[in-house]
């Protein structure tokens, strides 16, 4: 389970769609989320579960993180999903409609039972929790700290706005509080924060505005419903040249200071403290993922020195 990997884009793939599952890896999203929940009709839950199971055990997803969204334990499908998916061994099991810490812990107990049954080290499978209700938003921090397996929490907006007696709008003002609460809880807990889907595939301008907004709020990435949305998300999350150059100088200065045994570091006359270093590391990771760094520069290899 990798807590620190880059998760800008999480591509939804309906669990009963053989063609989409087969092709999921070719678009190079950061994560692929196979869905056994809302995109699968009740009568096809068994077939979707089997299809995802067989594909996960067979296909090479080329290092892309694999996530399975299971059905809740309040449905007849959730327990069977866990039995099958732990054996299929995705990187992450994602819980829908998480209202409180106990929801996470109940699923975690079942995952642990299956890990032991399958001879896997306990803790092999990571978890993430989607928060989709006002109660979940209120409990965001206790959810985010409910299990060591959690790599992140996500906001699911559709059920949330319905419960709030409103509807989604272009500005997203109706979910601003929930987004802020979730990203703050995730940061306080030291895990990732994922934004909800943007379903109007033909409104590229609206999509870009939303991705810029959630990046500015501090989210790590966004759930997406089409491969067409991947590039824009990655472009928005990519740092610009000025940010990359500054981050490289910060890391260089840290290395120089370490070599000299000096405690205080400044770049361009600005004191560099821990948050700036952390931001620089994150900037360079995103720059590397977008292929934006010039490795002929003197900063080459500094990050890993």
């Amino acid at each position: 389970m990798d807590r620190t990997r880059l998760r800008r884009s999480m591509l939804y793939v309906p669990g009963n769609n053989a063609g989409m599952i087969r092709d999921a890896a070719i678009y190079h999203s950061d994560s692929i989320m196979f869905d056994l929940e809302d995109s699968v009709a009740y009568r096809q839950k068994d077939a979707a579960r089997m299809l995802v199971f067989q594909n996960l055990r067979t296909l090479d997803f080329e290092g892309i993180e694999t996530v399975v969204r299971i059905n809740g334990l309040d449905t007849p499908y959730g327990r069977e999903d866990i039995r099958a998916m732990v054996k299929a061994r995705p990187d992450i099991i994602r819980l829908p409609k998480t209202d409180c810490a106990q929801d996470v812990q109940e699923v975690e107990k079942l995952i642990e039972i299956e890990e032991r049954k399958n001879g896997m080290p306990v803790g092999t499978i990571g978890m993430m929790a989607a928060i989709e209700s006002p109660l979940g938003v209120i409990n965001a921090y206790s959810i985010a700290t409910s299990s060591d397996r959690l790599i992140g929490i996500a906001i699911g907006a559709e059920d949330y706005v319905t419960a709030m007696k409103t509807a989604r709008s272009a500005s997203g003002v109706e979910i601003l509080y929930a987004r802020s609460a979730i990203v703050t809880a995730a940061r306080a807990a030291g895990i990732c924060a994922f934004d909800t889907v943007y379903s109007d595939l033909n409104n590229e301008e609206g999509f870009e505005a939303e991705v810029r907004l959630i990046k500015q709020l501090g989210f790590d990435g966004k759930s997406i419903i089409s491969p067409r949305q991947i590039k824009l998300v990655h472009d928005v999350f990519a740092p610009n040249g000025k940010e990359i150059a500054f981050a490289e100088r910060v890391i260089e200065a840290i290395e120089e200071a370490k070599a000299k045994g000096s405690g205080v570091i400044a770049v361009n006359g600005k004191m560099i403290d821990k948050p700036i270093v952390e931001r620089a590391i994150s900037t360079l990771e995103r720059a590397d993922a977008a292929g934006l760094r010039d490795y002929s520069s003197p900063a080459e290899g500094v990050l890993h020195a």
């Binding site: 053989a18 087969r22 068994d46 077939a47 089997m50 299809l51 067989q54 594909n55 067979t58």
Partner: peptide, 16 residues
């Protein structure tokens, strides 16, 4: 279909 999809559909059909 890929082999893994054929296996999945066959197993589901047999169980049904």
């Amino acid at each position: 279909a890929l082999d893994c999809a054929i296996t999945a559909r066959l197993v589901s059909a047999v169980y049904r």
